[in-house]
Design a protein around this nucleic acid. Sequence first.
DNA 1: CCGACTGGCTAAACCGATCAAGTAGTGTGA
DNA 2: TCACACTACTTGATCGGTTTAGCCAGTCGG
Lengths: 343, 343
Amino acid sequence: MTSGKRVTIADIARLAGVSPGAVSFALNGRPGVSDETRQRILAIVEENHWQPSSAARALVGARANTVGFALARPARSLGSEAFFTDLIAGIESRLSENKVSLQLRLVADIAEEMEVHRQWRSSNQVDGIILIDPRDDDPRSDRIAALDARAVMIGSKPSPDGSVPSVWIADDEVAETLFSYLAALGHTRIAYVAGPAELEHTRLRAEVLDRMAADGVSGEVITTDFSPARASAVTRSLLSARPRPTAIVYDNDVMAVAGLRVAQEMGRTVPRDVSIASFDDSVIAGLINPSITAMTRDTFELGEQAATLLLQQIVAGANLPSAQGPTPTLTARESTAPPASDS
Amino acid sequence: MTSGKRVTIADIARLAGVSPGAVSFALNGRPGVSDETRQRILAIVEENHWQPSSAARALVGARANTVGFALARPARSLGSEAFFTDLIAGIESRLSENKVSLQLRLVADIAEEMEVHRQWRSSNQVDGIILIDPRDDDPRSDRIAALDARAVMIGSKPSPDGSVPSVWIADDEVAETLFSYLAALGHTRIAYVAGPAELEHTRLRAEVLDRMAADGVSGEVITTDFSPARASAVTRSLLSARPRPTAIVYDNDVMAVAGLRVAQEMGRTVPRDVSIASFDDSVIAGLINPSITAMTRDTFELGEQAATLLLQQIVAGANLPSAQGPTPTLTARESTAPPASDS
DNA sequence: CCGACTGGCTAAACCGATCAAGTAGTGTGA
DNA sequence: TCACACTACTTGATCGGTTTAGCCAGTCGG
């Protein structure tokens, strides 16, 4: 049907009997053409299926209708975490509504990530950038400012003024909710099997547990590399110790499942002998036997909110304030109960 | 530091004392400049951190160094399947090595998918396109040909000549492996809890089970919408029927976990009373108690292979033959055993 | 009745690369 | 010595939009 040649603004102009400039004015809703002419042009555009060339637009510095996301994580490990798929799906879902595409790129480290940001910016390939995994003294924030790019950081707290605004989840509140729930059930010895120590949320959650010593809860924090193997080993030694914890909280659902299995292999009944909970929820956590108590966070919505903030900033052409993301809620399931009176 | 103005080929030309055209020749390794001049130009390029403008390149029809992937799946459900994250990670991993980006877009249906393909093509935004979920009489193949675009289909069989080449996983062989394994254990009544009937691999797998009637295996196929709720309901009725199956195979791990739980709730011991297996593996499948026998496929590598084929086609400027993807292997775990002698 | 202003449009420059065509300058062969 | 080829460039067109400057006709104010 429609053969090779692409329909350009010049074609439309010829058909409408006006100049290319006039067509551009009409299309972009700016003054310079009469309403009558505008309607005629728009009709012809419609009729001939004209599509703007994003390359040409990008060249003159207009919108690229694309947002970039460079991810500095090991590619092989991404799949085991539903987090990223949900996040990306959420981001994309909001972007799609606005006919904006997502440019995804896996990079080795922060240095390469920043290099990619520069390329994207300098060639006008993206209108905005999404950042994740904030760290202390993050070099990316300054770089983004130097590039004069719009961006959002997905993190654990509001950004300081002048740096990249964030969409954040209050990890301390999340920890407060889960640990308090266990304490209210009567647990006084709680172990927290965490991720790597350098992650911000690990620190925030551990601090909450520490503070609960005031309420008579003795907490123990063990950091891991997130691997199920480590989780199994840690669980085994926790349950062999004396006195042993009556509740174990894991940083994610995969580790919790691994821990649950170890407990069962050691002959403990969950939740009678030990309660188990996770900071991360998933479909599986609710299906397993016993189902696992977890903090449910709406990662999809987190992605949507980040995309929304970014799009708003792009339209405004300026930074906007940080925004709090969806608040995780406690989903109590079968794996938690008051501790057995004897222990 | 490096302030606003972007470094263009004209800047480099001025610094090197040559014309912009000469710089272009030097950069693209084509004849027309002396080796000496070329070296000088490249040094200046390096020194001044010149970066090509992809917009300008795209405008003249050169490579965009981007590959497009429009996904017609409900955004909310993507996260529960590790498949997509792994696939995308695999694709991206190979693309990154070649400094190529992935343009991801979620769309509502095939019509919108094709519309996006047209936009991408007509504005030279992507060099190639990835397709997934082939269907009978797929309209996308013709459209891709009309756009004269490079593409790969991720599917279940080699593509017919002239259409979009595929990277495929032999779903019939996969089914053969798993069903035969169960038959060899002594199972003669096998149920298959499948996905939607319109998916190609559902049909292929079901056909394999049907053919096994010749070997004395009576199979039953129940299609679902992939939801754990349906899987639970189906499992409950399967295990209440008489005679009931001694083995149940699920299309993915989430459904298998749901089925396992139902069996346990009904007082059946797995695998003594009923064997359970899945066509899809995951970390969780190996951690759960009992761990679930599954067909392990290397989705990451599948993505890598698809990206490789696509990149090769882009370089060649022509279609290449379909290629077989990584062969899934059986991972036997605790959830399968010979059927109890009585039943 | 003249100048200033305004609405509606055109012409042309521009963005940053690629590439075909053209032009010096040198060397080669008859 | 002239034609010819070859090297090493330069010039200028080109892609498809956006945008500035300018033109013309009509209107208004004084």
